[in-house]
């Protein structure tokens, strides 16, 4: 890994490489460059996961001529697809270097752990939504119970905006969550459930299930489960797999091609 990054920088394949380096005993994100190439000897791949693709988007916005390499776990690859689809980070400007992702029975060595849901306490199991549940299990709850459980989760929100700040695919210049006409400002908890639902709707065709938001949420709200449901609907209705390819999202409204077409099967069944 270290040798490969060194070679990429030396050959000029990339101008900057985003990975991690141990600093004060912590694996911290680090931008490796040709000028300080010896630092690549201290490059590490994990275990912390920062939003490297978000940093790449920020670099690209300032320096469109720089070629950016980065460590890419599976979710990073999906985020790069989405960022390219939404014209935030041109695919030709980034050079992902695949690394191991979450642990599984087939792949014991891993650089990440985000697919392991954290253990849940009794109160949350009784009143809230356990993040380890499947979407089907949540759907199976009776309507009022499901609503009450979600509201229990939402009322814990401290409106830190961490979920939005850390999300690799939240890139809007003006965010609806801070717009006083859309969501009341100043109150805690924020206007619920609208605060969370606005974000959930925006994640349709966009959320790549990286888990960074849930990890950053001080209130441990199972955000991934919520956005997972939203994208299951997108899959059902439009047959669109978010982040799986560079295919245009059904919700991209720029350009002259209509994209909001229902999935073929559904169109037939509705006739």
């Amino acid at each position: 890994m270290q040798k490969q990054v060194r070679a990429w920088l030396e050959d000029g394949k990339v101008d900057v490489f985003l990975a991690y380096k141990m600093d004060c005993g912590h694996p911290l994100p680090h931008a490796f460059t040709r000028e300080r190439i010896d630092e690549t000897e201290d490059l590490v791949t994990g275990p912390a996961r920062y939003s490297l693709e978000k940093f790449a988007t920020q670099i690209a916005a300032r320096h469109p001529e720089k070629k950016i390499g980065l460590l890419a776990r599976d979710c990073t690859q999906r985020a790069l697809n989405v960022l390219a689809v939404w014209n935030q980070l041109p695919a030709e400007q980034v050079e992902p270097l695949p690394v191991n992702c979450c642990p599984s029975a087939l792949k014991p060595h891993a650089d990440c752990t985000y697919l392991e849901a954290p253990a849940t306490g009794e109160v949350k199991i009784q009143c809230g939504q356990d993040p380890r549940q499947s979407i089907e299990a949540v759907d199976a709850q009776e309507g009022p119970e499901r609503f009450a459980r979600w509201m229990y989760e939402f009322q814990k929100c401290i409106k830190c905006y961490g979920c939005r700040n850390i999300c690799p695919v939240c890139f809007c210049k003006d965010c609806s969550l801070e717009h006083p006409d859309l969501i009341g400002t100043g109150n805690l908890p924020p206007d619920i459930p609208i605060f969370h639902l606005v974000r959930a709707v925006h994640m349709a065709g966009r959320c790549i299930d990286c888990g960074l938001c849930e990890d950053a949420c001080p209130a441990e709200i199972p955000l991934r489960l919520l956005y997972g449901k939203v994208n299951a609907i997108v899959k059902d209705l439009f047959d669109y797999d978010t982040g799986a390819s560079d295919a245009l999202s059904p919700f991209s409204i720029l350009g002259d091609k209509p994209t909001l077409t229902p999935a073929p099967l559904l169109a037939v069944s509705q006739e």
Binding site: H26, P27, L28, A48, R49, Y50, I158, K159, C160, Y161, G162, N165, I166, D215, A216, C217, P218
Partner: peptide, 19 residues
């Protein structure tokens, strides 16, 4: 400003002031 993921105090989380 970003939360430090491996910091023992906040474990990758911040409040709005820290952010």
């Amino acid at each position: 400003t970003l939360p430090m993921k491996t910091h023992p105090v906040n474990q990758g989380k911040l409040c709005i002031k820290g952010w």
